[in-house]
């Protein structure tokens, strides 16, 4: 056992299970060639939403699954990302590509500012505190005149330089590729982090904070690191989403529903596992998009009714998420994660 563990540690990342790697390679190729089979606009939109929510659920998974803190206000990083890139483009004409990184910077700063006092709280106290912080951000942004208060920001349209201004009016395909690349980057980096020493320490903290701290792991510091990582991968999704819809408002960018959906996706797929959020997204997002089409605008809440029922069923029958349906043999392989 000990020997195996050492072997697993010494082996570089790319020496993992060939089957898994072939599968991942196959999927990535499929994703890259998807636009060539002439998908409809709706199909492209669906894929974009899947990529976006997969990353957002992963971001939630980092803080909940790796360090054990349940955040109910994760939407704030999405909103900050969206507002920052849009604001710098609208006011100063700075390209959203740079705006994304300014957004990441702001989000990380906010994560640190919230994390230092809040991450000392455990359990329900942290959950409720983040819920309140999420609402507070919405209230503040609704009344902040500089960034358009309740009416939000309108990103000026531009037809000349689509790649520079990151807005494409003719086709959704460029958006598709941008979201795809961010999705791959986020998942790859989280996968690396999960296997790294930081990942091991975070899981140690999640499983037993006291034991972890007696082993010399600075619990508070690592929780803040996890929170910042989580903010860093969440924030670009906000910026890209803002570029995708081109009109942002507090109701939409700080929608409490986003926090909830992200949580439901992650729990559905399986918290604490890199692939859990992806599985949850692949099931829940098409479900919600198709029910919205099927029931039309008036029945927009049908998807949430189904979400609610599914999540209660999962909690009762499969508390560790859908990923636990995979054979245990594969899951417990060190190489899989």
């Amino acid at each position: 056992m000990n020997n195996n563990l050492q072997k697993a540690k010494l082996e570089p990342v790319w020496h993992t299970n060939k089957f898994i790697f072939a599968l991942i390679f196959f999927l990535v190729t499929l994703f890259f060639f998807f636009p060539f089979i002439n998908p409809s606009n709706f199909q492209l939109h669906l894929m974009i939403m899947i990529f976006m929510y997969a990353v957002m659920a992963q971001s939630w998974n980092v803080i909940a699954g790796f360090s054990g803190q349940i955040s109910l206000g994760h939407v704030i990083f999405f909103g900050i990302g969206g507002y920052t890139s849009s604001f710098f483009y609208v006011e100063y004409g700075i390209t959203p590509w740079i705006g994304i990184f300014i957004g990441i910077l702001f989000s990380s700063l906010v994560a640190i500012a919230i994390g230092i006092p809040m991450l000392r709280l455990t359990g329900h106290y942290f959950a409720i505190a983040t819920l309140l912080i999420g609402f507070s951000f919405q209230i503040i942004f609704q009344r902040w005149d500089l960034i358009g208060a309740a009416s939000g920001l309108w990103i000026p349209l531009n037809w000349d330089n689509p790649w520079l201004t990151l807005q494409f009016h003719e086709s959704k395909i460029p958006y598709y590729y941008i979201f795809l690349i961010f999705f791959l980057l986020s998942y790859f980096s989280i996968w690396i982090i999960y296997r790294s020493k930081i990942g091991f320490k975070l899981r140690a903290i999640r499983d037993d904070p006291q034991a972890a701290s007696s082993l010399g792991i600075p619990v508070a510091k690592y929780k803040i690191i996890a929170f910042v990582i989580s903010a860093i991968i969440m924030s670009p999704m906000g910026s890209l989403f803002a570029q995708y819809i081109l009109v942002i408002e507090p109701e939409r960018m700080f929608d409490i529903e986003i926090s909830i959906i992200v949580l439901l996706i992650a729990v559905m797929g399986g918290v604490g596992n890199v692939w859990g959020p992806l599985i949850g997204t692949i099931i829940l997002i098409p479900l919600s998009e198709y029910t919205r089409i099927f029931f039309g605008g008036t029945g927009g809440s049908v998807d949430l009714i189904i979400y609610g029922i599914l999540i209660m069923l999962i909690c009762i029958f499969r508390p560790s998420g859908l990923i636990s349906f995979f054979p245990k043999k594969i899951l417990e392989r060190k190489k899989f994660l």
Binding site: I70, I260, L264, L304, Y307, G308, I309, M312, I314
Partner: peptide, 20 residues
């Protein structure tokens, strides 16, 4: 169950009741 499951279960109930 773990606390995260308990939170999610009652949260799921809230989503269900509100959208219903």
């Amino acid at each position: 169950a773990k606390m995260i499951v308990q939170i999610c279960a009652t949260f799921g109930l809230s989503v269900f009741l509100r959208s219903l």
